[in-house]
Nucleic acid binder design. Structure first.
Lengths: 170, 170
DNA sequence: CTACATTCTATAGTCACTAGAGGATCAAGA
DNA sequence: TCTTGATCCTCTAGTGACTATAGAATGTAG
């Protein structure tokens, strides 16, 4: 059975050596076997676990969520009800991410297409993700979007008198 | 034209007040107009921009990447070649995320299904993301996966000096 | 056996927030 | 009008998740 030094693991998973040690320190990875000279040695299983962590992080999942999923995988004998509720909740999160990612993809693709036809990209990219704005469902007219987008000045403050807002209490 | 106080913006976008101020401090958001009493006032456009940032962050994009995309949207007159290469690169990243997210989704769905049939979830969840392990194309035989998964002992004797996590939520 | 790479622990730094102190302003009710 | 509580301001310090560095031990190729 093949075992790997921490550097091998880092190379194979794309996770930095120091990050692997960090994961061990917070208990996300088990303490590995050590050689006689105190060096960590890892088996195949850890490579999988670590890759899983890496991908999950890259997809924006937080460590407590990953810990929970790993916990599920660690104890297949756990209460099915627990596993089910955890899994279902995570499913919702994934679906939401998928939706938004697809919206973003479509808009960026559109930008590339527009570009390749020699015209210039508009700022629909922002609208793509901004529109399905989670909790408080708000939508704005197309005209507004375009008008808002067309700002020529990148980041500066625009001329706008101080207007009173209309109070919206919770 | 409606303007909003920072708290209104926070409520509408789901981004914390302090985070909005932080984004301003790093130049991701423009400096807003102020009232006579020095309070920030925001317009519609900022709501979109902020929602975009929020969703992007939740999808795991880093601030420099977001800054780049916002820059594209800010200056539709920028070099088409630049915009194109930035957009294409981001497209690849998105596709990779989509793929992995779908793999994870399928496996978690499978877990829920298995559960609902009264059987217990296996650890395929981890394999789902571990397999397409990016840079170094590695694959393991199905037999290996299952063998690796079937570990009866959860974590090899849970690391003892483990830091207990505080109940944290967002 | 030497030279250089890798590993070890421990500590400090970075990025992206997030919370708190201490004080000013606002909005509504008595 | 005065009070009260929510909201805002700036500034500083803390957190989560890494990431880099120092200084020492160990591994390995020539």
């Amino acid at each position: 059975m093949a075992t790997f030094a921490i550097g091998d693991v880092a190379r194979r998973t794309g996770v930095k050596v120091s990050t692997i040690r960090y994961y061990e320190s917070i208990g996300l990875l088990p303490r590995p076997e050590r050689t006689a000279s105190n060096r960590r040695t890892y088996g195949e299983q850890l490579l999988q676990r670590l890759s899983f962590i890496r991908h999950s992080r890259e997809l924006g999942f937080e460590i407590p969520a990953i810990r929970e999923l790993l916990g599920l995988a660690d104890s297949p004998t756990a209460s099915c009800a627990d596993a089910d509720s955890i899994a279902r909740q995570r499913l919702h999160e994934i679906d939401s991410k998928l939706e938004r990612l697809q919206a973003l993809r479509a808009e960026i693709q559109g930008m590339v297409d527009t570009c390749s036809r020699g015209r210039v990209a508009t700022c629909r990219v922002i609208a793509a993700l901004a529109e399905n704005s989670a909790d408080q469902g708000r939508e704005m007219a197309s005209a507004d979007e375009r008008a808002g987008c067309r700002t020529d000045r990148p980041l500066g403050g625009r001329p706008n008198g101080t207007v009173r807002r209309k109070a919206v209490r919770r």
